[in-house]
Amino acid sequence: MLLKISFESPTPIYQQIRDQIILAMAKEALLPGENLPTVRQLAKDIGVNPMTINKAYNLLKDEGYLVIDRRQGARIQDAGLLKNEKTEYLIEALELILSEAKLKGVTKEELSKVILRIYGKRRD
């Protein structure tokens, strides 16, 4: 997957990494079981402090997207295990986002396109 980190964005870097990894998983640019670069390597490649990457990886681990193994490093959680996680909070967050979208004039068709783009790529 291609990570694009913007230093100008108001979104913190660890949040950008977390968001892009989730987007890549949904688009299957990152597959279950796939290893991610080590904290130090990614920090070096982006040019940030390793603590920033560590924070992003830990956040993803806490949310259930990553498994962090001392020997193998960080890898993407298996799809089956990920589905067992609680999702109520996501539905709540989605409701808020959809409400904002409705109020700001985003049409159903536009939303459908986004849903199809994300869900259409998944086999299930």
């Binding site: 997957m1 291609l2 694009k4 980190i5 913007s6 670069p37």
Partner: peptide
């Protein structure tokens, strides 16, 4: 191009 951005390919990083 993008202003003040860094591109990293995770496959190359590994």
């Amino acid at each position: 191009g993008e202003k003040q951005a860094v591109y990293v390919d995770t496959k190359l990083s590994k």
